[in-house]
Design a binder for these strands. Structure first.
Lengths: 221, 221
DNA sequence: AATTTATTTTAGGCAAATCTAAAAAAAATC
DNA sequence: GATTTTTTTTAGATTTGCCTAAAATAAATT
């Protein structure tokens, strides 16, 4: 049951998985944008992954991972998130600087390594960005989290996750002193630009743009 | 000062370094044997590494690493041995099962990762096989170690290193209960087959073949 | 429904790393 | 010193992953 995929194949599978999570199925164009490559290259790889039984794909149709493909995706995500947790908790990396390194470490495939790392870290359930870590069977916790954009005025909440790890987003969050775990309260919402005013303990009220609110996930308190 | 080498290039550099340690300079044939590839493939890569200024090479001549190449080799070896130490000390791997995994982890290039790992591990000087770990400047301890084959009768010594990590060697050492750190005394030497009888505390006297004695390094006590 | 536009696939090529087979150079042997 | 033998290099192919440009298909528009 050794999958033995190339780094490139693993990156494709991971990207398909994440795009599926957002919209159920995936198209060639969207995937090529995500991987910063051309649609033609994507088509090549889709045929290869289909041949390996990891992708349900017919030419010109939308596609999604096969059950086997999904299982592999969860393994890759497990490795990525465990390494992120390791980097932050053990090596004292900032939560906003672990993504690239984890992106490399996730391709070291040894099952034994990953399971022993999991044990060493005491079986963490969430990575430093608040995303759930699949266990050795591919199962993970889900959190009842909503986008900050949907909270009513007066609602108190705690940041549980951000929808992506782009440098730009993490820089902005650092500037605003917002982290996973940060507690806040919605003070006001402005319909002109859909921005939101929030209060974080010990800080001046902050204005959160529509774009930022959309990618900040919280659980209500 | 980013080297940015492919995994293959790094493996070539590492192999050249290790062969140089043994015999000063390296030939195409020897290197192709070490990397389990063809001489033709080696020639291709030699030209590439020369073009990058990492190798001192002229067609049909023996070759060796340039100063830059040596520095890179030491970085790769540093990563490999730090990961081996991590796997044994933190993840409870056996010292005989870490080589393959470290072989993959060593190619994760982030300088920050490696230096933070070093710090987390408390700047270890030797890996689980007894080999010295280069520090962040490429400097490493040397041990006054000799091959077991050269010890006189009656000499007490402690195993400090083995010359390679082949499965076959490690299996034999496991069977004989010999590890890095094992203390022993030379009881007798037999000129018929150059085998050596040694005594390890609490164990029956053992016979060490000429081949095994040649690859077991010890420091005298 | 026909045509335009957008998406996706095919066709043909390129670079990296490998291979086999043949040629060139060096080393060993007679 | 000439001739084998060994070593090394070159030449030409292959595979993986990527590209551009053109063709095919699907979707959108009129």
């Amino acid at each position: 049951m050794q999958s033995n995929l190339s780094v490139t194949e693993e990156n494709y599978i991971k990207a398909v998985y994440h795009l599926q999570q957002a919209s159920g199925s995936v198209t060639t164009n969207v995937l090529s944008a995500k991987l910063v490559t051309t649609p033609a290259s994507v088509t090549d790889m889709l045929k290869k992954l289909k041949a390996k039984g990891l992708l349900l794909y017919e030419p010109y149709k939308v596609f999604c991972l096969s059950p086997t493909g999904s299982k592999i995706a969860l393994e890759i995500i497990r490795r990525h998130r465990l390494w992120e947790y390791f980097l932050v908790e053990k090596l004292a990396f900032g939560w906003d600087e672990v993504h690239e390194v984890a992106e490399e470490l996730e391709h070291v495939g040894s099952k034994k390594l990953v399971d022993k790392l999991d044990q060493f870290l005491d079986f963490p359930k969430f990575d430093p960005h608040g995303d759930p870590i699949p266990d050795c069977n591919g199962l993970m916790s889900s959190v009842e989290q909503v986008s900050l954009a949907y909270l009513p005025i007066g609602q108190q909440a705690q940041v549980t996750a951000v929808s992506n790890q782009s440098t730009e987003l993490l820089e902005l969050l650092g500037h605003k002193h917002i982290n996973i775990g940060t507690r806040l309260e919605v003070l006001a919402k402005f319909s002109f630009d859909n921005s939101i005013e929030v209060k974080i303990k010990d800080l001046q009220p902050l204005n959160i743009s529509e774009q930022l609110a959309g990618v900040l996930f919280v659980k209500t308190l």
